[in-house]
């Protein structure tokens, strides 16, 4: 099967839907399970990942011809760690409000599988422009997934959306607990697969 060159838009959209990091690639599940207790958490972690992903993707893509193949992974880790530190410091210095909300999440990112995986699979082989769009798509895809999970868990777990009490009571506390993260991720995966299957079938008909 010949691999068709993807356009930038395709790369971007694929990152969000067809290759969604959580629902399709099943990467970075620990944050997905641990942090996605509310929509706000999802947005914050998503933003942090988006930044680090785009920055690291571009960096690696820039220096892709100079990376010694035997030390790829250490280089990726180093790049991610540097960006995480830099973003953390810059936020703390110039945007204290955002730092207060996001500081906790930014520091978590160093070990995220999704970022390393995108660097290895994509940024180390493709030019900067493409890597940028791929990173953007992946970051947004992650954010989207986290928000969906956060939405379900926040609504069912604490009866709120974005901190606003919409139900007035807590329907199922279970959904706030970490174990429910797996539960919701699984159900959402199934749901998105189902949509994709239905969509493809329709296209064939």
């Amino acid at each position: 099967m010949a691999i068709k060159e993807k356009t930038n838009t395709q790369l971007f959209v694929d990152g969000i839907l067809k290759e969604n990091p959580i629902f399709k690639l099943a990467l970075s599940m620990c944050p997905a399970v641990g942090i996605s207790t509310s929509v706000m958490n999802g947005i914050l972690l998503g933003t942090a990942v988006l930044f680090v992903q785009v920055c690291s993707s571009c960096t690696i893509s820039l220096v892709r011809n100079y990376i010694h193949p035997k030390i790829r992974i250490p280089t990726y880790t180093l790049t991610i760690a540097t960006w995480v530190t830099v973003i953390d410091l810059v936020l703390a210095a110039y945007v204290p409000v955002a730092y207060k909300a996001m500081g906790l999440f930014v520091r978590l990112i160093v070990a995220f599988a999704i970022i390393t995986m995108r660097l290895e699979m994509f940024a180390s082989k493709e030019p900067v422009g493409k890597s940028f769009w791929d990173g953007l798509g992946m970051g947004l895809g992650f954010m989207f997934a986290m928000m969906v999970l956060g939405f379900v868990r926040e609504l069912l777990g604490s009866g709120m959306i974005l901190g606003y009490d919409v139900l007035g009571f807590k329907p199922l506390l279970f959904f706030v607990l970490p174990c429910a993260g797996f539960f919701v991720v699984g159900i959402m995966m199934g749901f998105f697969n189902w949509i994709e299957v239905a969509y493809n079938r329709r296209k064939e008909v």
Binding site: T82, T85, V86, L89, V90, A92, A93, Y94
Partner: peptide, 13 residues
């Protein structure tokens, strides 16, 4: 890179 950022941001932080 990290060191430079640190020096640049330390005071504000």
């Amino acid at each position: 890179a990290m060191g430079l950022t640190y020096t640049a941001t330390a005071k504000a932080k």
